[in-house]
Nucleic acid binder design. Sequence first.
DNA 1: CACGTTTTCTAGCGGCGCTAGACATGCGAG
DNA 2: CTCGCATGTCTAGCGCCGCTAGAAAACGTG
Lengths: 196, 196
Amino acid sequence: MTVQQRKERDRAARHRLILATARELAEAEGWDAVTTRRLAGRIEYSQPVLYSHFGGKDEIVSAVALEGAAELTEAVHRAVHAAVPDASGTAAVRALATAYLDWARENPAVYDAIFSMSTGLRFADEATPAPLRAAFEALDEVFARVAGSADSGTLTEVAWATLHGLVTLTRAGRLPAEYAPARLEVLVDRLVGAAG
Amino acid sequence: MTVQQRKERDRAARHRLILATARELAEAEGWDAVTTRRLAGRIEYSQPVLYSHFGGKDEIVSAVALEGAAELTEAVHRAVHAAVPDASGTAAVRALATAYLDWARENPAVYDAIFSMSTGLRFADEATPAPLRAAFEALDEVFARVAGSADSGTLTEVAWATLHGLVTLTRAGRLPAEYAPARLEVLVDRLVGAAG
DNA sequence: CACGTTTTCTAGCGGCGCTAGACATGCGAG
DNA sequence: CTCGCATGTCTAGCGCCGCTAGAAAACGTG
C-alpha cells in the first residue's frame, strides 16, 4: 500500500499547491490574471492536470473561497475572544468589525472569491458548507448580545450586510478612505443601539 | 447642414439602441451573455460599429451603469417625497430603503453594472459623474434627518453600505429571502437610532 | 525486461475582446 | 447625371480564454 499512499500524498500536496498558487496569483494580480494556462505554468504542469484535481476554474475559486471563509471566521473569532474576554457589547462589536474589515482589506482577492465569485456557494441552505455556517455563527455570537428585542439572527444578517457593503463600496472607490474610522464608529454606535 | 444633422441624429439613435440592447440582454441572460458579437448581431451591425461609439465593452457597461444610477436616484427620490411629505424619520428611511431594495431587485444586471462592474466609475472624487453624486445626495437628504450627533455624510455612507450589502448578499443566496421584511425593520430601527 | 495501467502532455475547438485593411455607400463638385 | 472622394461599414484575423480528446510518456507489476 506504500505506493498508493505515496501517490495520494503527492496528489494532496499538488492539490494544495494549486490552491496556494491560485490565491497568490489572485492577490498579486487579480483573479483576471488567474488563467488556467498561467496557473498550470506556475505549478509546472500542463492545463489538464488542473482538471484532474478540479472540475473547472470555478471549482478552484470556490475551494480558495472556502479556505478563506475559515480564515476570516478564525480572525473574527480570535479578535472577539482575545481582545474582549467579557467586555461591553460595544467593544465586542467594534473588535468584530475591525477584524472583519481588516481581514477583507488584507485579503481582497480571497474576499472576492468568497462573496462575489463563488456563485455556487450557498449560505442559509441545507447544502451550506461548514466553514460558511461557522462564519455566520461567529458573527451571531457577538450580535446576540446587543440584539435587544430584535431577532438576533436577523440583526446579524443586517450587520453582516453593513460590513460587506463597507468592504465592497470602499474597494470600488465609492467611499473616501480617510473617513473609514468615522464609519466604524457610526456602525458600532447604530448596530449596538440602546443595548450598548 | 441638414445632412450632418441627420447623421448626428441617426448616430445618437444608434448610440441609445446599443445601450438599450445591452441592458436588455444583460437583464435577460446576464452580463456574460453580452458579448460584442451578440450585441452587434442584435443591433444588426458588425462589431466595429460598437467600437465607433464606445471605446470598448467596459465603456458600454459604464454607460448603462450611469443611466441606471440616475434611475435609481429618481426612484429613491420619488419614493421619499411622494409617500412621506413630512413624515417621521422612520417612515422616510423605510420608504427609502424599500425603494432602493426594490429597484435593485427589479434591475439586478444594471445594479451590478453600477456597483460591481464599472470599476472606472469613481464616487467621492473630483471626477465623479453627476448622476452618482446625485444618488448620494438623495440618500443623504433622508439620513441627515436621523443623524443625531453623528456626521450625516458618514451615517449615509454606512446606511448605503447596509443597503448595498443586503442587495449583494441576498442575490448571492447568502441571506434567506423569507426574512427580507424582518431585515428591513431591523435596518430601519437601527439606522434611525434614538432620533426616530 | 516487457507489459499494461495510470498519468501527463500536445494540440486543438469554439468563443472572447478588439482591430487593420478591404470594401461599399452616399455626398458635393463639375 | 456622373464622377471622385470621404465617410462609414464589414470581413477576416490576432492573441487570448476555458476546456478536452487522443497521443505520448512514466511507472508499478509479473
